[in-house]
Amino acid sequence: MNPAASFTLCVVLAYAGMLGLCLGMDRHWKQLATGRLPAYAQRLCRPIGVLSLGLAGWAAGLVWPVGMAIVAWFGSISLAGFVLLMLMPYAPRLALWLPVASGMLLAVAASL
């Protein structure tokens, strides 16, 4: 993968990870998720989020050597969390679908 794609992947994974942690909290689960989703889906959110945050660090490692990757990893997680924070009250649907949509875009871009 080229560095630009890896960096995008890192940011998307960081966002997905923060979204996972966020949905693992009752308050935000009620705020974002639709009623149709089963309750066990919420219990899965936190582990998936943690995994996704870890993978974001791996993706940063594809772009930079270890030291720089750690800096970028922290920065991506923080900024992704801030973006999620701003999206939730103003565009809750977008907050939920952003990682799915960008994941699909990334898959298309990678397969081209």
């Binding site: 923060m18 966020c22 308050r27 923080s78 900024l79 969390g81 924070l85 009250p89």
Partner: peptide
Amino acid sequence: DFFTFRPAKGQRSWLDGHNASAVLLLPF
């Protein structure tokens, strides 16, 4: 309150925004 931001609620919103931007970017 890690992801809590409630806009258009006066002082509450400012406190939310101040706290969340500080906590989320605390490492930075």
